[in-house]
């Protein structure tokens, strides 16, 4: 056949949109992994690589058995593994990363049809699974080997106790990631730089609206319902820098499969996730609840879209009727 596609092209022919999106996400994730390596050494990198390999293996096998097609070419499995590892403590056994990645791929992604069909963000579901099953392990962070952390507890734990540490030199240390916390989500400066760099891409600019809505809502609620005994602004800073909040806002929330199309629905999506995050942080029992908030936002989003569509149809019908009346009157 003259027009037969080469084998290598067949492998990467489909899923163009997902591949493009995930490729950029992968590039954005790499600096976080480098920071994890710098702060925690080889164990952090080992955790990330093993989690990613587990996700890839699960996707390869389950994709061929259940979906009956190759779905590896969109890099989504790699991302799932890396993202779950980023939210875990560096010293944790890689088996936890494997368990989270397996759950994300086998229970959340593949049964619903793959990358662009999953109703929930798989990495958020994988981390939520680990949080529910192994809360003691997932939130027991070890201090960094390179830079001595300013406090022995994580920022999220300090916030739960009502303590404030956002003062003077501590602020710069926190922004650099010299805190006790997850492996790849602590470095706020790198996260902010990555987020800013993502604005260079048009697709990402559109998606950033939900991230901005999320961060602004969390900041606003943290200001109004401040949990620390210090100043309100200190509470806002601690809320934003603690746990995986900014990471979830930059990476998990703008998922192409779950993101709404219209700008105002995106904004609403981010605002909703922010509200749920703060509610869960104040009322919830776990140290970090942002993944549950993302999952809840994923669940509520289709209802919002349906309501919007129905309201749109109704208003269109009413407008048409009003036009007719006017025509008849005139």
């Amino acid at each position: 056949m003259a027009n037969a596609m080469p084998k290598w092209k067949e492998w990467i022919s489909g899923n163009q949109e997902a591949r493009q999106w995930n490729g950029v996400s992968l590039l954005m994730t790499l600096p976080l992994l480098v920071m994890g390596y710098v702060y925690y050494g080889g164990q952090a990198l080992r955790l990330a690589v093993i989690s990613a390999l587990a996700a890839v293996a699960c996707e390869l096998v389950a994709g061929l058995i259940i979906l009956r097609r190759r779905s590896l070419d969109d890099f989504n499995a790699l991302l799932i593994g890396f993202w779950i590892a980023c939210m875990l403590p560096a010293q944790i056994s890689p088996w936890f990363g494997v368990a989270g990645a397996m759950f994300a791929v086998l229970a959340v992604k593949i049964p619903f049809g793959g990358t662009m069909s999953a109703p929930f963000v798989p990495a958020a579901a994988g981390f939520a699974f680990l949080t529910v099953c192994f809360p003691e392990v997932v939130f027991s962070y070890a201090p960094s080997a390179l830079a001595e952390p300013i406090h022995s507890s994580s920022l999220a734990a300090l916030l739960r106790q009502g303590q404030s540490v956002m003062q003077g030199q501590q602020l710069s240390a926190i922004l650099q990631g010299q805190t006790v916390g997850p492996m790849g989500t602590g470095s706020i400066i790198v996260l902010a730089a990555v987020f800013a760099a993502s604005f260079l891409i048009k697709q990402r600019r559109k998606a950033a609206l939900s991230s901005l809505g999320f961060v602004v809502t969390v900041a606003l609620l943290a200001f109004l319902l401040h949990r620390s005994f210090g100043s309100r602004w200190g509470s806002v800073g601690m809320e934003l820098c603690s746990g995986s909040l900014l990471f979830a806002g930059v990476f998990l929330l703008p998922d192409p499969a779950t993101m709404p199309e219209r700008w105002y629905t995106r904004l609403l999506y981010g605002v909703m996730a922010g509200c749920v995050t703060m509610l869960l942080r104040i009322l919830g029992s776990y140290e970090e609840n942002v993944c549950f908030a993302v999952l809840l936002a994923n669940a509520i989003l289709p209802l919002i879209i349906r309501a919007r569509d129905e309201m749109g149809q109704l208003s269109e019908f009413k407008a048409r009727l009003a036009r007719k009346k006017e025509e008849l009157r005139s």
Partner: peptide, 14 residues
């Protein structure tokens, strides 16, 4: 072995 999620209803559903 202690996978707490399996005790919960969501583990049963899965």
């Amino acid at each position: 072995m202690n996978i707490r999620g399996l005790w919960m209803p969501f583990g049963g559903f899965l």
